[in-house]
Design a protein around this nucleic acid. Structure first.
Length: 270
DNA sequence: CCGCAAACCTGCACGC
DNA sequence: TGCGTGCAGGTTTGCG
């Protein structure tokens, strides 16, 4: 499920459970995710106190007083279940705190990952080195996009999915942000003018902020034993809405590019 | 650099 | 009811 807002919501949901808490037990039930979890994950986490939780792009970061940062990625189907009554299939990692809270990382497709990186090396950690700016950070500007997209003939849709250009957008929120800024997903990235890029940056902010806010308001749902945390699909304007009317009077269309679906309104997105 | 495909793996919706 | 097909929020790699 997770793009940036879902990871942010996840981290906010984990914070009250883990912040300043000591880890009492770690159970690796199925370590072979997309990358194998480190074999010594349990040893290195057990007895450690969590000092901070954060997020970079679509990765969640959990710092410990042992000098390690646990970095998780939820892939396509990952989620943390909080205080589950019982463990389910695909609960691959279970963490218990001394206070008696329990977290289970459930990931049916196992496209996710869990790594343990010395805090001092996190910035240089290979998956992070090439990441572009945070879409909600001060560095994500029309100027940045203008430079990053210069000369690129690939579609703006595909380029926004490129984590080197901006780190944290996925298929859903790229579609939504392009709709919000009325930019055609088919347009060559390098052809966009600065004013249109400024609109795009604003649209990205708008769409992500709204999704995070919606996530924040459902933290109670998130913390339910079933751990349900969905996208807030009711507020999608185009994603998953092929054939439905657009506010402009057009009809939401869909096409495949790079093996993925793009949803857009051909009438009002130019 | 571009566009595409495949790989990783499971679940679900759909049509027959 | 059961089976086959296609599709799904991500990332990486390789080919022409």
């Amino acid at each position: 499920m997770p793009e940036l807002p879902e990871v942010e919501t996840t981290v906010r949901g984990l914070r009250p459970v883990l912040q300043d808490q000591r880890i009492a037990r770690v159970q690796l039930r199925r370590p072979d995710l997309r990358r194998a979890m480190p074999q010594d994950l349990g040893q290195r986490l057990t007895g450690a106190r969590v000092t901070a939780l954060g997020r970079r792009a679509k990765y969640g970061l959990i710092d410990t007083d042992r000098g390690d940062t646990m970095i998780f990625h939820l892939g396509m189907s990952g989620r943390w279940r909080v205080d589950p009554a019982e463990l389910l299939p695909h609960d691959h990692l279970v963490i218990e705190t001394e206070a008696g809270r329990r977290l289970a990382l459930n990931d049916a497709r196992r496209f996710g990952s869990v790594d343990l990186v010395p805090m001092a090396e996190v910035e240089q950690w290979a998956p992070f080195r090439a990441l572009g700016p945070e879409p909600l950070g001060a560095q994500f500007t029309a100027d940045h996009l203008k430079a990053a997209l210069a000369g690129r003939t690939a579609s703006i849709k595909l380029l926004l999915l490129d984590q080197k250009i901006v780190a944290g957008l996925g298929n859903i929120y790229v579609c939504e942000a392009l709709y919000e800024s009325r930019i055609s997903p088919r347009r060559a990235g390098g052809s966009l003018t600065r004013p249109r890029l400024a609109r795009l940056v604003e649209a990205v902010h708008l769409v992500l902020d709204a999704a995070i806010e919606a996530g924040g308001s459902t933290l109670r749902d998130y913390a339910r034993p079933d751990g349900e945390l969905g996208y807030f699909s009711k507020q999608f304007k185009v994603y998953g809405r092929e054939g439905q009317p657009c506010e402009c009077g057009g009809t939401v269309a869909r096409y495949a590019e790079g093996g993925r679906s793009t949803f857009w309104c051909p009438k009002c997105q130019r």
